[in-house]
Amino acid sequence: MLETHDLTKSFKGLMALKRHHLRVGPGEIVGVIGPNGSGKSTLFNLISGFLRPSQGGVRFEGHEISRLAPATIARLGIARTFQGTRLFKNLSVLENVRAGAQLRYPVNLVEAVSGWGRARAHQTASEGRAWGLLELVGLAEVAAQPAGSLPYGNQRRLEIARALATGPKLLMMDEPAAGLDSHETAALLQLIRRIRDQFELAVILIEHDMDLVMNLCERIQVLAYGETIAEGTPAEVQADPRVREAYLGGVA
């Protein structure tokens, strides 16, 4: 369903991502790992339309999407969460999810002001969808609180609910476990599995937490300095000498 082909990005001569190839099938959970600066975030920004490739492209369900605007890509069914969350902090928890849901229940200005046409039906529907998602991530009780007042782990869950509200077929998560304790990480793993099953999503995640990646992902791709150095099942990747070198060499 998602395929990057020959995807390359250079910043003023620095190759952030080199001839990258990745295929993600429906319902698959794929992890992208690698040391800092290996091109993981560049990859996400290319797929979600915040960056334009220097070469190559991204196909989603057969369409080339690498020149489309982020909002258009979201509409096609790719949602993402950010490293460190990017919520509307002064909006309430419910409003954050509704902001995502309105993509599927659009209302125009005349309808919004007059209450005619789709306004009521769509407003009710988007609110219903938002409540359903808040139930799913366990935040229904705090729906009226400002998003910025939630503890960090819950902000993460809220960002996932907001992403799901846009009705994605592919969910990209940028370091979803960063800053979570082991208990919260275990809950996150359960949540990701549950939403994959319930919404029949494909999931790509960038993650440093190896426990999460190895337990959750069916397939893992390893990047270093913009190049793909390994790809396979968790066991295969763990056994790969180049991966060990990239990690140990980089850190030690």
């Binding site: 909002a71 909006l91 954050n96 902001a99 229940y105 846009t166």
Partner: peptide, 25 residues
Amino acid sequence: RTQVGLGMRAAAEDLTAAHLVGLDV
């Protein structure tokens, strides 16, 4: 109270995130 108004508040707070959730900025 309106959905378009919600979009305005969201976009005012974080234009990038607004693009990302598919708001017609």
